[in-house]
Amino acid sequence: MKLTRRTVLSGVAATTAALSAPSILRAQSRELVMVGYGNASDAPLIAAGEELGRRNPGVSLRVIGGLSAEALAQIKAARGNSPYDLAVMGSPAIVNALAEDVIVPLDFSKIPNSGNVDPRFMPYGYDVGQPIWFEGIGIAYDTTKISTPPSRWEDLWSGEFNGRIGMCRPQSNLGLGVLAATCEAFGMPQNDMQFALSKWEELSPLVGRSPPLLQQMIERGEVDLAPLWHVNTALAASSGLPIGYAKIAGPGPLMLPTNIVQFVNTAEGTADLVHEFANILLTPEIQKMAGSAPIYFGTVVEGIEVSADAAPYVPSTPEELNSTTSLDWRSFAPLRGETVETFDRMFAA
């Protein structure tokens, strides 16, 4: 074939048509695209999506795995033309997303099941997101090396754990949350990150870049203990490794709600589907599924029992349930970038 202006131009035209086809299909079949976890934790989301499809023929849900932070960056890169309709997002990420103005507040009157949610969780949606479940922050530890795990945050500074402890880099919600909890434990304002970092410097910790990498460091025996999501700890323990989980108090047990949020610029009619989807997530069926093995999310709906195998990870006794608390994410989430820089000034090898 001879390459001429005509063949090239027609080729370009054909390619453009081919590339634009999926978006045409997407518009016709009304597919909701959401940012999920990218692992087994997506199961309740997928189940709820199927239910949504049953109720609204022609509608389907595609769950794309990835960091919510990366999704925010993508939306920002798309200049507001969000490739996603909705996402699961921790409270601090909501704070950051609000700063970027990429979230459309949910109308809670369109989510009837929202009324069944334990009122303690609702504020963490910051009036824009619907809390659907929560993850706890506690201490994961190697049971062969630590007989009595710490029970309060201050216990970490007993001197016993120096050089044996791991921490998560503060760009993650986990890392940031642990620093805030440290401030709280020592009576400082939760946003005094400088104070928290210098406290942690005393422990000469080994640093994991992300919660999964910190989980792997415990699994490989590089650290004996580390603050970790209860979900990651349960995952590590489920592979048969001698890993225990301590729900730390003072403040605590700590939890971070996960919320459904809706992004800007979604197509006409999508909002109704997002609300309906959030409502389905709050049904007892989906909540039970999320709360049981192997995911063990903490449920936010009142009256859902914590299963026995989830009890080591999720607040289950009355006093645990009563003392369960979270952090003032709003006060320190905007400090994320700054805290990372301070961290690097102090810790970078």
């Binding site: 920002k76 998560c168 880099r169 080994l206 640093v207 994991g208 870049r209 970038g337 690097d344």
Partner: peptide
């Protein structure tokens, strides 16, 4: 990122975190 641990910072990692996490 994988071998250096959470406190190993190089230029490309810094760019990645500034763009994705700090959104700056």
């Amino acid at each position: 990122q994988l071998l250096g641990g959470g406190n190993y910072l190089n230029a490309a990692t810094m760019v990645y975190e500034q763009v994705v996490f700090s959104l700056d």
